[in-house]
Amino acid sequence: METVIFITTAIVAVGAALGMVLSSNAVHSALFLILNFCAVAVMYLLLRAPFMAAVQVTVYAGAIMVLFLFVIMLLGAEKADLGSEPIGWQKPVGVLLGAVLLAEGIYVAYKGIKLVDAPITAALGIGQPTTLSAVLFSKYLLPFEVISILLLVAIVGTVVLTRRTVKLKEAE
């Protein structure tokens, strides 16, 4: 059963990734990317990491992609202008790096290199919400709290930078 689900989601994930790269409409690309994120979230579930799956959907497919779509539609940049590439060498270098990554992946899969020596079962608890929260509210309590100040600064900063432009428009 798991194999069937895996193969299905894998096909969906790869197909969505291809669709994202190949579609010329930026909105379609973004939608394909959401599909890809959801497929990856299902894979996290298969790996018994429900928290990762939930975060993948809410943060990436939810928040970040909505922001993407919002910006694309706000700027009216749905149609990619393929004629003018400002940096000419970008494309061949991208293809080359992609090929290197692919070769590396094939090599690792072929050789069956074990990247981690520890048994995999020990790490299974990592994706559980309880394990995560126990660490977050004991060992990593201080960073967790300080990040709230960081977010406050970010909000204040956003207000400072945007309210100024409103003022400027009024002045004109």
């Binding site: 960073p143 300080v146 990040i147 960081l150 600064v153 970010a154």
Partner: peptide, 24 residues
């Protein structure tokens, strides 16, 4: 290392905004 990261980010994000304080 985590505290170093958060300290760096806290000072950086404040400074990004302060650098752009004269934004017009």
């Amino acid at each position: 290392l985590v505290m170093i990261f958060i300290g760096v980010e806290l000072l950086s994000i404040s400074l990004y905004v302060l650098t752009g304080f004269a934004v017009p």
